[in-house]
């Protein structure tokens, strides 16, 4: 018994496949989704989505978004910048963090668009660094199943 999981970000499909369990960072805390779960619609917090299939686990960083759970499918509409932790480019994340911190430290006027963008960039960079530190060793690749 498996449940289909689709992780889709605004600019690409991050993952699709049939898996045993999906754990996602729901608004009210972590939720583990097994097949035949009741329908749920939830927003996502910054965090990680874990999927497990046959003893293998794969982990994705998501920068917020929305998840729709149906008994046979979990659709995760992730915001931009969501990816498999194996794909995260640590150097790029470090550089982005530095850039954002420098900008924010200059005490630029808050609530301008650029300030908010940089703040979001900092949060994303921190999320990536954090997630890699915590999970990279354990993560493994599950080959995506054919449609």
């Amino acid at each position: 018994m498996t449940i289909r999981c689709e992780i889709i970000s605004q600019d690409r499909t991050v993952f699709t496949g049939d898996v045993d369990i999906v754990v996602l960072p729901g608004a009210a805390g972590e939720m583990g989704i097994l097949p035949k779960h009741a329908p749920v619609l939830t927003t996502l917090k910054y965090g990680v989505v874990k999927i497990r299939k046959g003893g293998k686990e794969e982990i994705f960083a998501v920068a917020g978004g929305v998840a729709e759970v149906q008994p046979d499918i979990v659709t995760i509409l992730a915001d931009r910048g969501s990816e498999n932790i194996q794909d995260i480019d640590l150097e790029r994340a470090e550089a982005a963090k530095k850039r954002a911190e420098e900008y924010l430290a200059k005490s630029a006027p808050a609530d301008t668009d650029h300030y908010l963008i940089m703040e979001a960039a900092l949060r994303r960079a921190n999320l990536r660094l954090d997630v890699v530190r915590r999970y990279r060793k354990s993560g493994m690749r599950i080959p995506p199943s054919d449609n």
Partner: peptide, 14 residues
């Protein structure tokens, strides 16, 4: 097809 959702945090917000 769909059954009724549960909403988190709550319906209105989402």
């Amino acid at each position: 097809p769909t059954a009724a959702y549960e909403y988190e945090p709550d319906m209105r917000v989402i």
